[in-house]
């Protein structure tokens, strides 16, 4: 990473974190198994980014789709952006990423989407322990890494799961509830 970072000065911290988060979201979708009933096998997956995107996560994902030609399960995927969780069409996505602006609504969101075959991801603190499926959290320690918090109960309720490869990662995955 060091070699590709510009040498100096300007803080790339904001950029750096959303880029890594974007890459995580893409991998999480790759390693997610949706139930057959969701019909995701035959069409491009749809990812919704929900909330105030001040850090520009949507832009990074858009760039990934259009310029890097990112694929999930061998197919291109679609990105939709929603100003907030109440916007129409949110429930029609296959995966949703809730930005930190939605922090106050987390409990309601999880409740309203419970059982639906939608992969729920967020970097809101404690998302997985509150019943969200997957959270992106920061590790402790002076060198901070992103770790995936997985709530398998929540996944099971929606008849979904993550692949053994992801769950078996030695580092970077924390199972919140079995």
């Amino acid at each position: 990473m060091l070699t590709t970072m510009p040498l100096s000065g300007q803080s790339n911290q904001l950029e750096n974190i959303v880029e890594i988060e974007a890459a995580y979201i893409r991998h999480l979708m790759e390693y997610t198994r949706w139930p057959e009933s969701a019909g995701t096998n035959n069409r491009p997956l749809v990812l919704g980014v929900v909330g105030k995107d001040t850090a520009g996560l949507g832009g990074v994902l858009e760039y990934g789709i259009s310029e890097v030609a990112l694929k999930i399960k061998g197919r291109p995927f679609q990105l939709k952006k929603f100003a907030n969780a109440k916007a129409a069409g949110v429930a029609g996505c296959d995966a949703l990423f809730f930005l930190k602006s939605e922090q106050g609504l987390v409990d309601d969101l999880i409740k309203s989407l419970k059982g639906k075959p939608i992969l729920l991801i967020s970097n809101i603190s404690g998302f997985a322990s509150k019943g969200g499926m997957t959270g992106l959290a920061m590790s402790d320690g002076p060198k901070v890494h992103i770790i995936i918090e997985v709530n398998r109960n929540a996944l099971k309720e929606s008849k979904m799961d993550l692949s053994a490869k992801l769950l078996g990662l030695k580092k970077g995955v924390r199972i919140i509830k079995e």
């Binding site: 990473m1 911290q13 904001l14 750096n16 974190i17 880029e19 890594i20 974007a22 890459a23 995580y24 893409r26 991998h27 390693y31 850090a55 990934g64 890097v68 990112l70 920061m138 060198k143 901070v144 890494h145 992103i146 770790i147 992801l166 990662l169 580092k171 970077g172």
Partner: peptide
């Protein structure tokens, strides 16, 4: 970053906003 595997991503260091 998009070319990295999940194992490589886990190793990447981040700083918050």
């Amino acid at each position: 970053i998009f070319s990295k595997t999940l194992e490589q991503l886990v190793e990447m260091e981040v700083t918050s906003v």
